[in-house]
Structures are given as structure tokens and as C-alpha cells.
């Protein structure tokens, strides 16, 4: 499956990873090579085969509704690149 530069820039935008224009060509070739190799999966007959997302064979564990956590905003903000008055701070977002 060919992966053109537009696709790469669409994907990089979805992933929020900036790619310089002069890199798009190179990266599209790299991704194309990997995806080409992955395309061998299309040979496999999978009709009627259920998709598997996890292998635990367990039941989803359930938690009791109790407050057992939180109450340490200083710990939460400890590593923040920018904070003020107990808030994380980011450039202004315009809705």
C-alpha cells in the first residue's frame, strides 16, 4: 500500500508529532516499506476468526466504590513543566 506525503502529514497531525516538510518524503518511504512487509497479513484466511484483544482469560476485576485515593495535588503537580495556583498551565486554548 503506497503511503503518500499527505497521508504521512495527516497521520503525524493525528499523532501530534511535527514532521518537517523536507522529511515527509523520507518518512513516507520508511512507513511504506514497513507497511508493505505488514501487508503479508492479507494472505491469511481469517473469516470467522474472532479478533483477540487480550489473552488473560480472566474476568474483569471490579472495584468497590470507595474513596481511597487523591488528596495530594502537590504530588500531582510535582513534575509539571508549568503550574500556578494548583493548576497545570498551558498556552491559552480558544474554544
Amino acid at each position: 500500500m503506497p503511503i503518500d506525503k499527505d497521508t504521512v502529514s495527516k497521520v503525524s497531525n493525528l499523532a501530534r508529532i511535527k514532521i518537517d516538510n523536507n522529511q515527509l518524503e523520507k518518512i513516507s518511504k520508511e512507513l511504506e516499506a514497513v507497511m508493505g512487509w505488514i501487508d503479508s497479513l492479507s494472505e491469511v484466511e481469517t473469516s470467522g476468526i474472532e479478533p483477540v484483544a487480550n489473552v488473560t482469560g480472566q474476568k474483569l476485576p471490579l472495584r468497590e466504590d470507595k474513596v481511597t485515593d487523591g488528596g495530594y495535588s502537590d504530588k500531582i503537580l510535582n513534575n509539571a513543566p508549568e503550574k500556578e495556583g494548583g493548576f497545570f498551565v498551558v498556552p491559552k486554548v480558544i474554544e
Partner: peptide, 16 residues
């Protein structure tokens, strides 16, 4: 397990 209380101080009802 953090609280759903309304009106707490910012980032107070936040777990890891």
C-alpha cells in the same frame, strides 16, 4: 479511587 466531590480545590481529587 479518587473522590467525585464537587467544588474542591484544583487538582485535589486527582489520583495518579
Amino acid at each position: 479511587g479518587s473522590s467525585t466531590n464537587f467544588g474542591s480545590k484544583p487538582n485535589e481529587n486527582v489520583s495518579l
